[in-house]
Computed example of a mutant assay.
Amino acid sequence: MTTPLPDIDRAAAEAMWRAYADAHPETVAATQDWTVEYFGDSPTLADELLGLVLDGTKRATAALVVEFIAEGEALPRIGSHWIACDGAGVPRVVLRSTEFRLATFDEVDERFAFDEGEDDRTLATWREGHRRYWERTAAARGGTWSPEQQIVLERFTVVWPPEHRD
């Protein structure tokens, strides 16, 4: 059983967004939509994956379209922003989507697996880890995972705070 993620500190996320927006008004004016999220499905995984973002290893992420639907969220757009939280629900960085495509499991390539930055960064470990993850999260939603399901493949840059900016 996975430990549930805590509530997100929404006030801190709003403050982080305002600071970013004040520093980059033109960018925010062009792409005003933003969300606040975690990587993964547990505090431990959220911290692990955020650590890869903070050290510059992780610059891509993958999520199932059905996950966006289940959460009532729109799919990301190029230029959209999201605030990534640590495993305690504390907002840590603002990310901006730079590339977006839909694919099936078998259509994910080695470059994307490398850019996602997990494990040894190979396609083989990407497939094994994501298969296990999506089977687990689908079961938690009361569903099943299939390799034919559409996956959102997103690349991003870190844009805030300045000390973590790409």
Results as ranks from 00 to 15, higher is better:
26 E>P: 06
24 H>Y: 12
162 P>L: 15
138 A>T: 10
63 A>E: 01
59 R>Y: 13
131 R>P: 08
88 A>Q: 12
149 Q>Y: 11
1 M>V: 09
39 F>Y: 15
121 R>H: 15
159 V>C: 07
45 L>F: 13
14 E>R: 12
148 E>D: 14
77 R>D: 15
125 T>A: 13
49 L>I: 02
107 E>Y: 06
120 D>A: 05
126 W>D: 01
96 R>Y: 09
56 G>H: 06
30 A>D: 10
62 A>W: 04
106 D>V: 10
20 Y>R: 05
33 D>C: 10
7 D>G: 15
127 R>K: 13
162 P>F: 14
126 W>F: 08
106 D>S: 11
46 A>C: 08
87 G>N: 03
145 W>S: 03
74 A>Y: 07
76 P>A: 02
151 I>W: 03
105 F>R: 10
151 I>V: 13
99 E>S: 15
120 D>R: 09
75 L>I: 01
61 T>A: 08
103 A>D: 02
78 I>M: 07
11 A>I: 11
133 Y>Q: 01
12 A>D: 02
53 V>E: 06
28 V>K: 00
1 M>F: 08
1 M>Q: 10
5 L>E: 05
128 E>L: 12
151 I>R: 00
143 G>M: 08
43 P>D: 12
64 L>E: 07
127 R>I: 09
35 T>R: 13
163 E>Q: 14
31 T>Q: 13
74 A>E: 14
55 D>E: 10
64 L>P: 07
1 M>I: 08
9 D>W: 07
45 L>V: 13
119 D>E: 14
36 V>T: 05
81 H>C: 07
90 V>P: 02
22 D>F: 11
135 E>Y: 06
109 D>S: 07
3 T>W: 06
81 H>Y: 05
51 G>T: 03
147 P>A: 08
117 G>C: 11
141 R>A: 14
9 D>G: 11
80 S>G: 13
112 F>T: 00
